[in-house]
């Protein structure tokens, strides 16, 4: 072990070596530890994207919060969306600590979002035109998110792992809520079943896209390899997508729903799911900010942010005054 004093006098290469030794030993890296620049930038990118996805994820469901068809459903979806915003806040705090040495803060995150420099998950660019979409989102989008987040629980970055621990606990309630919504529709009237099937048709491709491309080949670049090297993540996109299919294909079929992919089958020899690839060009377009609902949702967020600027100014002034008095 080297002391903090000795560590400061090591060369950059030696620091990097020590860092990689820690990663290999499975140690957790903390916010104030030395870390290579690309570890920091990759984490910021991943965690800010994750956080802002939770925040933007409130919009497709927002529409259905007041419209939920019973008092119980209203309460449940309110609780769910409130959790998501809470996750977003928790994750953004983790990202903000990482950004501090770079002189950046929440305001930069918001501006990056508005200018489409900060991306968010493909699924939250999509329309959710019926109550059944809210059901599919809660069941399958949250179900997909649980798989990625569970994988990330073991991440080498301590603060992210701890935030995820809490998030995963709450997400499992969301999936139950989603399951309950879907079950009610699947065992309901013709209208309800039709609505559910149509929502599944709409969400199938975005769900496959959710895990990201198989390799850099599909979209031209990927951070997966670097993230695996640093043990930020432990599984590839394809491994997660296969897990998703294994978990949900039988459940979807049991509900009497049809998966909109005639080529979908499990290959016993290869021990893997064969499926129709989503349109990766479309995926690229969507996450670059050209999805069907990207602009209208960003507009909602941006307009309201601008209209409440006077409130943030007032709070800053109030806190400044209080510090002067105190």
């Amino acid at each position: 072990m080297v002391t903090a004093y000795e560590f400061r006098h090591l060369s950059e290469e030696e620091k990097y070596e020590r860092f990689m030794e820690r990663i290999e030993r499975g140690e957790k890296i903390e916010a104030h530890d030395w870390m290579p620049d690309d570890y920091r930038t990759n984490l910021i990118k991943l965690i800010a994207m994750h956080g802002i996805s939770e925040i933007m994820g409130a919009f497709p469901e927002k529409e259905w919060v007041p419209k939920a068809p019973t008092l119980h459903r209203k309460l449940a979806i309110m609780a769910k969306v409130q959790d998501e915003v809470g996750h977003g806040q928790l994750l953004l705090r983790v990202a903000e600590d990482l950004m501090k040495p770079l002189g950046k803060d929440r305001e930069d995150i918001m501006q990056d979002l508005f200018e489409k420099r900060l991306k968010f998950h493909n699924v939250f660019h999509m329309p959710a035109p019926t109550w059944a979409d809210a059901a599919i989102i809660a069941w399958l989008v949250d179900g997909a998110a649980i798989l990625t987040q569970t994988m990330l629980l073991k991440t080498s970055y301590g603060p992210y792992g701890r935030a995820l621990k809490r998030i995963c606990q709450e997400e499992s309630f969301h999936a139950k809520h989603g399951e309950s919504l879907v079950l009610a529709l699947a065992s309901g009237s013709d209208y309800q079943r039709k609505m559910l099937q149509e929502a599944l048709n709409r969400w199938w491709e975005p769900l496959l896209m959710f895990f990201g491309p198989r390799s850099a080949k599909e979209v031209g670049h990927s951070k997966v390899d670097v993230n695996i090297k640093y043990k930020i993540r432990s599984k590839t996109n394809e491994e997660l997508r296969q897990e998703f299919l294994t978990k949900y294909v039988p459940q979807i079929k049991r509900l009497g729903l049809t998966i909109p992919d005639e080529t979908l089958r499990f290959d016993e020899d290869k021990q893997q799911w064969i499926y129709k690839d989503p349109d990766w060009e479309k995926f690229k377009q969507i996450i670059n900010g050209n999805g069907p609902k990207t602009d209208s949702r960003l507009k909602l967020r941006r307009d309201s942010y601008e209209k409440t600027a006077w409130v943030r100014e007032a709070l800053a002034k109030y806190n400044k005054n209080r510090m002067l008095v105190g």
Partner: peptide
Amino acid sequence: LGLVPHIE
């Protein structure tokens, strides 16, 4: 929801 002055 989603329109208030800040995320907190």
